[in-house]
């Protein structure tokens, strides 16, 4: 085989614009090989070989096949395969074209090593840490010990709250309230019926025992102040019933005054009296239920407690702005 084409020479020659087919044809002719003979050796039809030698790729299948044919042809002639294929790729831009099934859109692919991904990941981690810190602080301050049925709680709270929020208005005219209370009963009779009848009985009975029943009395005072609005009345009457009963058993009065917003949870010994929720500045609450009281007071600096009119010092119980303690008015008064 007189292959005069050396590796580097071949590269140079084949990279000419004429394409590899003509070069292969020239080689074939120089070796006196008939086209029909090559056709038999390569198992390719003569038409195909002619197209291949003419660098006419339109009649040939795909680039994969053309490269394969060229490789086999070059090998048959004893020519290095590499330069032939390079020449083909240079002559036919289609050869480097990826098959149409390939669709690559990798430009906006982001991998885990990407700066953005790292940033987002660290952001998420920091966020989680912050959230847990916030949660833990909140847990220290306002523990969520949700127990008991919510209906009871709300009923108790609304009952006393209404009584007390309006007590503020009527507080100045407290002595008159008692007097008015009796008068009010008669006034309210046509609307109140049985409920209003019970209320004055209790208030008069409890009246002798001191201020504990004040809430009951205040309720009627409220009713008087608010005129004859039915809704208010029934609510306050309920409040009177609830706070009136336990009040009868105790002789100590515990008042809580809020000078700032505070979340508190107060539970009495029997568990029937509960107060849970946030209280705004200026609210004053009188506790019902059976002492001793278990108290958790948020923002304790803004809370003042009076036991029988005397200030009860809660400062020893304050931990991180929250006071937790049990208050027994009896032991305090001694």
């Amino acid at each position: 085989m007189n292959t005069t084409v050396s590796d580097t020479d071949g590269e140079k020659q084949y990279s000419d614009a004429e394409g590899p087919g003509r070069r292969l044809r020239a080689l074939r002719e120089s070796e006196n090989l008939a086209l029909s003979r090559v056709s038999v050796l390569l198992h390719l039809s003569e038409e195909k070989l002619m197209s291949l030698e003419a660098d006419d790729y339109a009649k040939l299948p795909g680039p994969v096949f053309i490269q394969g044919y060229l490789r086999n042809y070059a090998r048959l002639l004893g020519v290095p395969v590499g330069p032939v294929l390079n020449a083909y790729r240079a002559a036919s831009p289609e050869s480097s074209r990826v098959p149409e099934i390939r669709i690559t859109q990798l430009s906006h692919e982001v991998r885990s090593g990407h700066a953005l991904v790292r940033l987002v990941t660290w952001g998420m981690v920091l966020g989680l840490v912050l959230l847990s810190v916030v949660w833990w602080r909140g847990y220290l301050q306002w523990p969520m010990q949700l127990s008991g049925s919510p209906e009871n709680e709300t009923a108790a709270v609304t009952g006393t709250e209404q009584a007390e929020s309006e007590e503020n208005d009527a507080a100045q005219s407290f002595p008159e309230v008692k007097v008015n209370a009796d008068g009010e009963v008669t006034l309210a009779l046509p609307q109140g019926g049985v409920e209003t009848l019970e209320a004055p009985e209790e208030t008069t009975a409890d009246g002798g025992e001191g201020g504990v029943d004040r809430s009951g009395a205040e309720v009627n005072a409220t009713a008087a102040a608010a005129g004859s609005i039915q809704a208010v009345k029934s609510a306050s009457a309920e409040g009177a019933e609830r706070s009136g009963e336990p009040a009868a058993e105790t002789s100590q009065q515990v008042v809580i005054e809020y000078s700032g917003n505070s979340w508190s949870k107060i539970e009495d010994a029997s568990g029937s009296f509960k107060l849970e929720g946030s209280n705004n500045a200026g609210i004053r609450r009188v506790l019902g239920g059976v002492p001793p009281y278990r108290m958790i007071l948020g923002n304790a600096a803004a809370v003042k407690i009076y036991v029988n009119g005397q200030v009860f010092d809660i400062s020893p119980f304050i931990r991180g702005n929250v006071a937790r303690f049990t208050l027994d008015p009896k032991s305090q008064s001694q």
């Binding site: 390569l42 198992h43 994969v64 490269q67 394969g68 044919y69 490789r71």
Partner: peptide
């Protein structure tokens, strides 16, 4: 087989 056989790249 008598068919052209090509080796893929």
């Amino acid at each position: 087989t008598g068919l052209p056989v090509l080796i893929a790249e």
